[in-house]
Amino acid sequence: MGQIAMVHTLTVVSHEDVDATGLSISDALRAVEDTYRMEAASGSIVPVKIEMHTGRDGAFKLAMPASIPGWRQSGMKWAAFFPGNSRWGVPDSHSVIILDDWDTGLPVAVVEGSLITNLRTAACAAVLAKFTVPRAPTTVTLVGAGMLARWTLRALVETFPAIETVRVVSRTAATRDRFCEEMREEVACELVPLGDAEQAVRGSQLIVSSTVPCPEPSLRSAWLDDDAVAVPIDGLYVWDDSLFATAGRFVTDHREFLAGQYDQRPDRIAWQDWEEIASILDGSSARQATGPTVALPTGKASIDVRLGWEVLARVAERTVPAAPLIEGRVHAH
């Protein structure tokens, strides 16, 4: 059989290139909901994240592959968290998204992932909230006032135009005051900095947390109203364990990820008993909450891959400069 020669070019898309595409929170919200709906209709292949600890305190790396047959898109996010990197002038968290050709499996692009990660994480929180809140919230609480909280606020006000008040609670007054001062230039709702977490949570219809790991839970489930929705972007460690007895509904976007993560104690529900957002979107699940709802985004790689392909398409359309890293010939038999 003859040989078919193919030229293989691997394109590198830098942070500046990604930023130049104009990828927005609106794009991310649409991509998240579209991906959830595609997964509900035809499925996806998203293995549980492979986590590797390096021996350095708190540092780890993640391999996050994903494949979406309905769009013939696949790839893998390679992410790392190395606390203390700032002393070398580099971010603690960083990632790249490797995109590969559907037919050959050859890598076609490496896309810098920091903006995509922030957009995806915030958008997942907003979309999960959209399909789990009993009514459009007017009062929202943000726990944490870092960069991710900024993207989360942008995602929430676009998803829920009825929001009137956003309470912002964080560990330091300077952080939450600066957050509110800066974000008042972007959003029309009232931003209220608070130092008391209980005051911030009680009476709020939607509570979204994005904090750094802490040794003790900072939020109490007893503060939640029965119709409140908690979206812990940072994982469930921020809430006390009684949340599992208090909440009446548990929703996530990747149940298998929860196996071994949140179901090891007898007072926690099994991962199989969590609802998947896909089952809500396709109508196969119609559970009613009998108490507060927990909606847990897991950082699903299928959405990183979807947004990575969106960026690559925009790079091609808008001729954003992107450096060819490897060019060679592959012979297929």
Rank of each mutant, 00 (worst) to 15 (best):
P69D: 07
L153G: 01
G291P: 12
Y262D: 11
G195N: 01
T35E: 10
V157H: 06
R184E: 08
D253H: 11
A259Q: 14
G203T: 02
Q272Y: 05
G55C: 02
L191Q: 07
S86I: 05
A200R: 11
A278N: 10
A230N: 03
H94K: 14
R167S: 00
R306E: 03
D101T: 14
S279Y: 01
F179M: 05
R87Q: 07
S14M: 07
W102N: 08
I25F: 06
P232F: 07
L128Y: 06
E256A: 14
D304K: 10
E275G: 03
P297K: 09
T138K: 13
F131G: 05
F60S: 07
V168K: 11
P83A: 03
G146E: 13
Y262E: 11
G75D: 04
S93R: 14
V7E: 11
P65F: 10
R255Y: 09
Q261C: 02
V127K: 15
D57H: 11
I97R: 10
H94I: 11
A63G: 04
Q199C: 04
R318N: 12
Q3E: 09
G55M: 03
H8K: 07
A174S: 09
G55Q: 09
V127A: 12
A80K: 05
R120S: 01
G195R: 07
A188G: 05
T246D: 09
H333F: 12
W309Y: 14
H254Q: 04
S14K: 08
E186N: 08
G195E: 01
V311L: 04
A63C: 04
L148C: 06
A222H: 10
A145H: 13
A197F: 10
R265W: 11
L153Y: 12
A332V: 14
A295N: 02
A289E: 08
Q205R: 11
R120Q: 04
D304P: 04
Y36I: 08
V169A: 15
A289Y: 10
L62W: 10
F82Y: 10
F179G: 04
L10Q: 06
H8E: 10
D282V: 00
R171G: 12
M76Q: 07
E198I: 09
P292T: 09
V108I: 10
L236N: 02
P324H: 10
E182W: 00
T11E: 05
W239R: 01
V96W: 12
A66T: 10
D282T: 01
L312Y: 01
S24K: 09
V311Y: 04
R314S: 08
Q264T: 15
L307N: 00
P292H: 05
T252L: 13
L325V: 11
S44E: 02
A174L: 13
L206R: 00
L224Y: 04
V46F: 03
R154E: 13
T139E: 03
V294D: 03
T132S: 12
Y36W: 14
D253T: 12
M76H: 10
Q3H: 09
W102D: 05
A80W: 06
V315R: 06
F60K: 13
R249K: 13
L128D: 01
H254K: 02
A31K: 06
